Simulated scan of single mutants.
Amino acid sequence: MKNASPYRLRDLVGVMKRLRAPDGCPWDREQTPQSLQPYLLEETHEVLEAIDRGHPDEICEELGDLLLQVVFITEIFSEQGEFSIDDVTHAITSKMIRRHPHVFEGISYESADDLKAQWEAIKREEKSTGTKSIRRGPAEVPPSLPGLMRAQKLISKKRVEADSELAQSLRKLILQEPASQQPRSQRIAAALCSLVDLAHQEGIDSEQVLRQYLNQSQQYVKTPEGKGG
Rank of each mutant, 00 (worst) to 15 (best):
M149C: 06
Q31G: 06
Q37K: 11
A112V: 09
P56Q: 01
Q69F: 12
W119K: 03
P56I: 07
D205F: 01
V71P: 14
S206T: 12
H102V: 03
K172W: 15
V15F: 13
D163A: 04
T223W: 08
Q34V: 14
I73R: 05
V160H: 02
S164W: 07
I85F: 15
I122K: 04
I76W: 13
P178L: 11
I73F: 05
H100N: 09
R29V: 01
E120H: 03
N3P: 10
F77C: 12
V15C: 14
Q69H: 08
D163L: 02
F83A: 03
Q212E: 10
T131L: 11
L145C: 06
D65V: 00
G226Y: 05
W27Y: 12
S180D: 15
I85E: 10
Q201K: 08
R10T: 13
M149K: 07
L175D: 05
V196Y: 11
R124E: 03
V103G: 01
S111H: 08
E43Y: 06
G106P: 04
S111P: 00
S217A: 09
L166K: 01
P33K: 09
Q69E: 11
S169P: 02
S217Y: 03
L198R: 07
P183Q: 14
Q168E: 11
Q208W: 07
D52R: 12
T74Q: 00
E42H: 10
D163M: 05
L41M: 14
A117G: 06
E58N: 13
V71D: 06
Y109I: 02
S94G: 01
C60A: 14
Q34C: 06
I92M: 06
P56E: 01
S194C: 03
R136I: 12
F83I: 01
L198T: 07
L173R: 07
Q176I: 13
I59D: 02
Q208P: 00
G137K: 05
D52A: 08
I204F: 07
R135A: 14
D11S: 12
L67F: 09
I85N: 03
Q152R: 12
P101S: 00
Q152T: 03
I134W: 06
E62Y: 05
A91L: 02
Y7Q: 14
S94D: 04
T89H: 04
Q201V: 00
K116M: 13
Y109D: 02
L63T: 13
T129P: 12
T74G: 06
M16Q: 15
I122H: 05
P26K: 10
Q181M: 15
Q152G: 09
I155R: 15
E125N: 11
N215G: 08
V70F: 11
S164V: 10
L115R: 07
L63A: 04
E140T: 07
P178Y: 10
A117S: 12
A4E: 11
S35N: 02
Q31Y: 02
R150F: 00
G54I: 03
R150D: 00
H102D: 01
T129L: 14
V221M: 14
D52Q: 07
L195P: 06
S180G: 12
A50H: 04
R99M: 08
L67Y: 05
Y220C: 11
E165W: 04
Y220A: 09
L68S: 15
M1L: 15
